[in-house]
Design a protein around this nucleic acid. Sequence first.
DNA 1: CCCGGGGCTGGAAACGTTTACAGATCGCAC
DNA 2: GTGCGATCTGTAAACGTTTCCAGCCCCGGG
Lengths: 347, 347
Amino acid sequence: MVTTGGPPTVETIAERAGVSIASVSRVLNGHGGRPDTVRKVERAAAEVGYVPNAVARSLKGGRSMQLTFAMQDIGNPVYVAMVRQIQTIAKEAGYRLLLHSTDAVVEDELAVLRSLADRTSDGLILCPIRITPEHVEALSTAARPVVVIGSLPDGVPVDSVRADSVTGAELAVRHLVETGRRRIAFVNGPADTVPGRNRQRGYREALAGCGVPADPALVETTDFTVEAGSTAAHRLLDAAPGIDAFFCANDQLALGAAQALHSRELRIPGDVAVVGMDDTALVRAGWPPLSSVDLGSAERGRIAARMLLERISEESAGTSEPAPARVRTVTPRLVVRASSHTAEVTE
Amino acid sequence: MVTTGGPPTVETIAERAGVSIASVSRVLNGHGGRPDTVRKVERAAAEVGYVPNAVARSLKGGRSMQLTFAMQDIGNPVYVAMVRQIQTIAKEAGYRLLLHSTDAVVEDELAVLRSLADRTSDGLILCPIRITPEHVEALSTAARPVVVIGSLPDGVPVDSVRADSVTGAELAVRHLVETGRRRIAFVNGPADTVPGRNRQRGYREALAGCGVPADPALVETTDFTVEAGSTAAHRLLDAAPGIDAFFCANDQLALGAAQALHSRELRIPGDVAVVGMDDTALVRAGWPPLSSVDLGSAERGRIAARMLLERISEESAGTSEPAPARVRTVTPRLVVRASSHTAEVTE
DNA sequence: CCCGGGGCTGGAAACGTTTACAGATCGCAC
DNA sequence: GTGCGATCTGTAAACGTTTCCAGCCCCGGG
């Protein structure tokens, strides 16, 4: 009476093969069995097209073989790069990947963290844009291993992998100064975010380090989009004469700045150099190809995924004391392309 | 003795509240109960920070509340647009989203289809790049509802939502002809894919319809990337004199063509017009902003998600006969921007 | 006072799998 | 032939939830 219409289960196979469900399970998981038992079970399983119910398996085993990646908006190429790496590593290890766009809603991020307790996911990679006290609380009490891509306050017992935007910004500014630029404008993203603050700091410190005077009129703060970049660049060009370079906190902003320059018939890099940040696929979209600081998005994704898997296996190995939180920092790398050459050169 | 170290379960709450697990479940699902029972249970649940085990719930209920989206590569902005819509709709309906990159490996696509039987996912949205007989077989016997984004042979009992690339290509070519272009080159993606074939057909038919002679020397076939677009454009410009427009089967290809033109100091659209396809976020990345045919990626994603949810609820409503396969076609829309204006105009 | 009925409640089964345990089977050496 | 060990097998429990069903309580009407 197991031969109902539903999909085949171990019981269906057991009946067909004339053995117990325990034997079916053992054979199917390669845990031994007499040769003829193995044969009968495998045959029956193939005949009915048996596929194990992963949900039941998860319930028994306590592991869902799913990882979650939560970021604000998959539209951002930086997150796309991360998703790619994470997905690849997850797949290799036999995990599926759950995607979560939080739209930068704090409440959503917290909901994701809390829902770790529902056993749906074995671990979480989170890219928070801001860290509130609630985040710290939720991270500390997370029901499953979490890896944060971004910077965390000291003392939060959670692994993290961070970019070094300060150094990254310095790389860009120094490069511009070294190639003869002096009036270097800075188009930044929202200043109340961690990346925003750090990139601003790197910009200032590099200028100071190079002995170039800082001019507040050369800094604009706006959203991380192409349109915002264009608008900001226009504003800067109107207000501050003599700008010979744009350093932008983001490739999107840099593309926007490049458009503003084009529409004013200014030449890149002849009249004005442009350097972006993140080194996303977008650098090859515009003209000329965009110099950009690679903050290691792909690498951060890869490292985060590896760290998470490691935590998960540590956890299931049941070591008494959990290892202390690990922090990895990825070193930035400046990629010079035509948009910041001294003379106009095809890359 | 339920008070073990593990996470709280209905049993933990039942003990604490002095009621049975059945009552706990009922209260927590809002299925009535005496006021004081409700109070006790809710209080106990709050005290221990109870979160229901979604896996157990799935096992009992037969639904995982997860949808799967499988495409070749999340790096493609077209898929990003789809993911966004799908994720939004899934979330609204209480579903989580599983992502699957198949890297265009047929075997992977089939594996995804077959794994629908493992109960992990309640439905699948699939973007196949090619349809093999194995696909047809696997689609017909899929264990869960599937919606295909793309074109399916007649008779496959699966919902699908398709773009109309033929008409889309015609829109682009007609627009170019109407604005005075005569030597219209075509940079296509791989010709052995459905979109590749259809875009080629649209190009040819539009030319014929407009009375413009077709010249095989004006057509290049390559991969769907920026670099390939640039290379192909260079080849065409070398081989076929007098080209005054590029129609590209893809925004990436169009950006590549634009770069080739820039590096040859040809003006867009003054000397050569450029029109892309898909109307992705990339159209605003280059300069000038790119005209493009919107094939409705976002809309296709949205429709596919809705269709899938509808199928799922039909299925669980247990209607005797499944409704026949639905096919929806999204009508393309030409978005004219500066890259194909008759005279150079800032958008 | 007794009976009937409506709403709550608790016990138990079910979803499909893995696995501990005990019992069966086998081969082999004595 | 007997005893022993190793290997395999089947029964049953467990994972955490929802839900069927029977029984209970309480209340109102006769």
